[in-house]
Design a protein around this nucleic acid. Sequence first.
DNA 1: TTGCACAATGGCAACGTTAACATTTGGGCG
DNA 2: CGCCCAAATGTTAACGTTGCCATTGTGCAA
Lengths: 334, 334
Amino acid sequence: MAAVKKSVSVKDVARLAGVSEQTVSRTVHDSPSVRPETKERVRAAMRELGYRPNFAGRSLRRGKFKTVGVAMFNITGTGNLDRMEGFAAAADKHGYAITLTKVDGHPYTLESASSRMSALPVDGMVVIMNRMPADFGTFEPLPGMQTVLVTMLEHPLCSTVDNDQFDCSRQVVEYLLGRGHKTVHFISCPERSLSGMRREEGWRETLRVHGIEPPRLVRGDWTAQSGYAAGQALAEDPTCTAIYASNDAMAYGCIRGLESCGRRVPEDVSVVGVDDSLGDIVPDRRLTTVRFDNKRVGMWAVDKIAGADGGASGVEHMLIPGVLVEGDTVRDLR
Amino acid sequence: MAAVKKSVSVKDVARLAGVSEQTVSRTVHDSPSVRPETKERVRAAMRELGYRPNFAGRSLRRGKFKTVGVAMFNITGTGNLDRMEGFAAAADKHGYAITLTKVDGHPYTLESASSRMSALPVDGMVVIMNRMPADFGTFEPLPGMQTVLVTMLEHPLCSTVDNDQFDCSRQVVEYLLGRGHKTVHFISCPERSLSGMRREEGWRETLRVHGIEPPRLVRGDWTAQSGYAAGQALAEDPTCTAIYASNDAMAYGCIRGLESCGRRVPEDVSVVGVDDSLGDIVPDRRLTTVRFDNKRVGMWAVDKIAGADGGASGVEHMLIPGVLVEGDTVRDLR
DNA sequence: TTGCACAATGGCAACGTTAACATTTGGGCG
DNA sequence: CGCCCAAATGTTAACGTTGCCATTGTGCAA
């Protein structure tokens, strides 16, 4: 019958229950030094008034917010949904919440993200770096604000975490070589993509480790169209029995390009993609691909901040390997 | 050289600048009643100490958090990324932040989402309803917590917003009829999907409005596989010249199913999907489909809360129409 | 009976900020 | 020369919570 008042405070509850504010606070925290019947009386009062502890008062007192900030330069991006799932899951586990901010429009610097965050109720922050911020090298995290960057680059002052792109290529190349292919052709991506370039390195170096000189790569632009063109180009090459494409769209495009030239997949040519992004979209294929655990990336980042809590933990760098998922687009030549 | 202290408060700045705390506060808010040179002195002190206003103190004082909470039952879901983009964009516009919580694992009720939110620093909340919460009919938003539901259902006490699924079907059916097709066949989705059923209604009723008795529908399960099967089944039917599938994956599957039976798209049969989710994934088609503006849905929800600010605005229900995107899978029979 | 330990509860202060009111200062004008 | 107003700045209190210490009450051993 009450609850017209803006907000119900411990004081109101205390008055109604006929106890001190302190006893109410103790009841909220289920302290053992409150008699059970007193507790019950207080709880009844809380129910009647609809008491909800006030976040601001609490964190002012405690100096902690139990919240991790996430700064994104652009929200739409492969894997961001899974990463968020990871953020939310880890936060939930620690009793934390996630605060999201877009840093688009403002200058693309870590400094700008950091300064924006510092005015929000967060104990630490995660920055999803899609591009290279101008101040990556010189950035210093705000004192008391634990900062984790989602990137494959290492940073001297901030912990970092990301998918292991190099290892991804290693897995694919060794998988194909292990199935008897003499070499692996590569459809790359635009050169400005950091992660794409790392995949390219992984492909090149793994071949070299196995004593194979990498064949000339075909440059794509992430779209299935470019994969289609690449497939048609590679269809000419009789030495090409295995193709590794930088993403699934290009891999699928490549398959259809090969088929348009009369080359069958996987009978004549094997094709592997990356990202496991096709899902249920394509009816006639189960593409062999690499699935990244973006949820785990997200969890690691938030764990790092929420898990540390009081004890400042050191700077760490984490690369999380993907998992090769076997489909039906690779032929075993052995 | 300072900044070893946990946090710098107005008091510290005031002391260093040789003014009162109030003058510091006024400087922070750029009040006109502080002399420019005083302001500059205060600002210098803030810079030197690295002062950042404390969120908790501020919102305790103001009773406002400038933050909107978003409760999601499951984060992974078509369009959620775009919706978040919308949340973030609208929040940014109003100087608000977004706080994300997952309400998974807890019971699937609005009550549970609401109670979880009430302990967080938010002025209002948005609930993304993927399924039907048990207490949808009886739920009352917490007093003082403006609540917006993302759902097509109307609620007596909460504002709601979502894509207009009925209108989407109307657009597709009228587009196809307008191009000379005598009827439109439909590949539906599992019956538990609320939005899917609404699309089905839209298809059925629009046909009836045009005096056409809806043909028997084929039930799918969202996957391209089921679309493939549907395509093969419909290939038998000579009256079938136009197919409307409940999502793009099924539409694409259907195309390939038709082709496997020797029916060409769009020469023999026209196919339209919904969601615009194929993007660059498919190389050989530009599917005619309906693109939903999930970003706008998200913006509307946050605008409703952040835009109202003080003045409590009334309950509203908003359905946002999608846009039909022409590809090359529809033939004009006229 | 007195003294003491321990359980239960209360009073007070402080976290950082800012609205409301109070005070000081300088300048214009009668 | 004195008065008053406005500009500039200071003082106080309060937002809601909780850690610390003080107080009261109860049972038991000396």
